[in-house]
Every structure is written in structure tokens, then in C-alpha cells.
Design a binder for these strands. Structure first.
Lengths: 205, 205
DNA sequence: AACTATACGGAAGAGCATTCCGTTACGCAA
DNA sequence: TTGCGTAACGGAATGCTCTTCCGTATAGTT
């Protein structure tokens, strides 16, 4: 797992939506704490899942809970900040794939990557659909960044007559995210297998 | 929504897994309370969803929380008791359909019914996959009753060459249950549409 | 009517999210 | 370098919920 470089950190800090006043600078200790929280959250999310107790994260980061809530008022703010790079990378991969592969292959490969991304983050798929207001911004961020990406691939595949016309990028994103949820006591590959079958259903026009 | 008749009630009471000693009879007030809890739960589940606060149910039933937990130690016990008839009806429908319709039509019709059943119970799909130990028995009950039902339909459809061979009844049940989860702010028909596409993917062999 | 096991109710304990405010200490200006 | 204004901190406090436990009430039997 790669570490964050300084640029990444700045971007992540910007994303903590508290820079209410662009004229005033952020204090150095605040900056440090945001970084500590992001790294703690990344590690805790990997171990326990994205709905881990807040205290677990603050303890690891060595800050009080107040500090967590000040920087990330909603849980989704923290999740988005932690996953931002991976989401962006996922979106960029779409462009690369559409250049390298034939429309249908590009589409299925990308959905496969997306599946793996969502499936590997414990609890992410569940959080995306939880309905809990604490996670509200998460689906929005996902959609805003990934819908255009998938839409490009889907448009090309549709234009070349490989894909049915009555399905939108949004439909697919939402559905695959649903299908990514791990099922207790079942083979983890179940989800991938079933998503491949869903993709089969997208064929034709 | 139909009311419970006396036979239903008896069956439901039996299902409250506390009849530890078959020789000793259940007291009349206990019986009354179980019925009151079942009716309250049915009504609260319909309004708030299956993960509604326990107190809401006990208040409506006019009993203390202790009484709820004594009769239904896990939340899944209560849900199973409330949904038992509908689950059983869903299982029986499979037999009827396989007699009335051609294999492929019977299969798709049944999945459609199952979709509607799971989709209309608020929070049920989520609970099925929550991983919370409080819901543990729920997936088991679902599987034990619905897997054989679907397996009949699936076997027939496969035998007549309509369905691919690498998918089990369990696969389908789990996947459709995942896909039934309502997505906030989206057209409720989304799920049905996408499940129909998944079914398309099951075609062929 | 008395007795006993069954069942009741709700207080108590524990966990977690979120808020609030008195205290700390950063960074600018003199 | 010192002093001040304020950004930021920490964690106690609040509130909600689940779950357990036990003193009390009562159905059903003798």
C-alpha cells in the first residue's frame, strides 16, 4: 500500500471541507492532525471496516474526538478523503482502457476493476447504500467522479452495438455497487461471478 | 394487509423458540403478549423498517422490553416470526408456477415475485446481509425454505436448456437479495429492471 | 385458599455518536 | 522577543439504543 506524498496530503486537507475562509491560513498543528487522522482512518478502515468506532481512529491518531468531528463532521467526509485517490485513479483508468481496448472489452475490464475496488474496502459497499445521513456525501462523490468515466466506456460500447440501449452508466454503477457487498460465509468470488453474469445481461442492443 | 387467524398465531408462537420444555404449557398472558408483539412488530416494521428501535415495538404492544427479549432473544427471531407466512407462501408459489408455466417463464416469474417480496419489506434486504449477529437466523431461514423452492424451478429450466449450468439456486437467491436493496433517491423500479437484466445473463448454457 | 413456577416490567449497565466549552498554544505584529 | 487574538484542542457530558437482570405480580394447579 503506497504512502501519501506531500501533494496528496495537501489535496486531502483541502478536501476536509472546513477551509471556510480562503483568506485565513490553516494552523500547522491542525494540518498535522488532519494528516494523522487520515492515516489512522486508512489503517482502521482496512482492518475493521469503514464503520469502525470513531474512538478507535482518534486513539490511533493520538487526538481527541472533538478534533475528528471538527475536521470531518460527517463520516462520509473522512471516507471520501481517504479514498479520494483511489476513486480518482479508478476514473482515470476508464480513459486509459478506452484507448487500449475494444469497446466491449474496455467496458467489462473496467467494471471488473471497479468491482475489485469496492469489494476490497470493507463495509464500503454497505456504507454506499446504508441510507444513514452520516454517509450522505459518499454516494455523491462516487457518482460525480465515476459516472462520467463509465459513461464514456458505455457510450462507445453502445455505439458499436454491443450493449443494450436501455441502461445508463448510473444504473450500472448503482447495481454493481449493490452486488459487491460481501456475503457472510460465502465464497468471496461469488460477487465477481454474479457481476460477470449481470454483464452478460447487458449484451445485445 | 390480512390479519392473523388463530392457526397462524399458534404457528407463530411455536416459532418463538422458547418452548424449551414440551411438557409444560405456556401461560395465557404470555401467549397474549406474544401476539401483541407480533402485531406491533408487523406494523412498526412496515412503517420504520425491520431495524426499528425495540422500544417502539414494545410501547405499541403495551409490554416492557424484558418481555420482548424473553420471547424473541434475537431480532431475527421476531422478523422470522413476522414474515414466516410470506416466506412460506413464496416457497409454495414455486411449486404452483412450475406446474402452470414453461420452465423459463416459471423461473423468471418466481424471481420477480421474490424480488417484490424482499423489496417491499423495508430494511429486509439490508438485514439479510448485515452480518450483525442479531440477524443471524434470518438468512438461514430464508435459505432453508427458499433454496429448495428455487432449486426445483432452476433444475427444470436447466434441463430444458434455457439456463447456464454454472449457477446454483443459492447463488441466485443471494444475488437477487443483494440487488433488491432500495437505493435512496432512485426510482424504486431500478432494482426490478436490473434484476431482469441479471436474469438475462442467466440464459443459455 | 395457598402455593409455585412462569412471566412481567422497567431500572441498570454498557457502547457509541455527537456536541459543547474551558483550556491550550500557534502565528502574527509590534 | 514578547504579547495578544483566535484557531484549534481534548474530553467530559448528553442522548440514544441494545441487552441483562432481578424484585414483583399472577396464572394455573392442588
Amino acid at each position: 500500500m503506497r504512502m501519501m506524498g506531500p501533494t496528496d496530503v495537501d489535496a486531502a486537507i483541502q478536501s476536509a471541507a472546513l477551509n471556510r475562509d480562503a483568506t485565513r491560513r490553516q494552523r500547522a498543528d491542525a494540518k498535522r492532525n488532519v494528516v494523522a487522522l487520515l492515516e489512522a482512518a486508512k489503517s482502521v478502515f482496512a482492518r475493521t471496516g469503514v464503520d469502525a468506532p470513531a474512538k478507535e481512529i482518534t486513539d490511533l491518531a493520538g487526538v481527541g474526538v472533538g478534533t475528528l468531528y471538527r475536521h470531518f463532521p460527517r463520516r462520509s467526509d473522512l471516507i471520501v478523503a481517504v479514498l479520494q485517490h483511489e476513486i480518482d485513479a479508478c476514473a482515470r483508468a476508464a480513459t486509459a482502457l478506452s484507448a487500449e481496448q475494444a469497446p466491449w472489452e474496455a467496458l467489462t475490464t473496467w467494471i471488473g476493476q471497479f468491482t475489485e475496488f469496492v469489494g476490497t474496502k470493507r463495509g464500503l459497499a454497505t456504507a454506499l447504500h446504508s441510507g444513514d445521513p452520516a454517509f450522505d456525501d459518499l454516494p455523491r462523490y462516487f457518482m460525480e467522479h465515476l459516472e462520467p468515466a463509465l459513461d464514456g466506456l458505455l457510450g462507445a460500447a453502445r455505439a458499436s452495438g454491443h450493449v443494450r440501449a436501455d441502461v445508463t452508466a448510473r444504473d450500472i454503477l448503482l447495481t454493481v455497487a449493490l452486488m459487491c457487498q460481501p456475503v457472510r460465509g460465502e465464497d468471496p468470488h461469488l460477487n465477481e461471478r454474479m457481476i460477470r453474469i449481470f454483464i452478460e445481461g447487458l449484451r445485445h442492443s
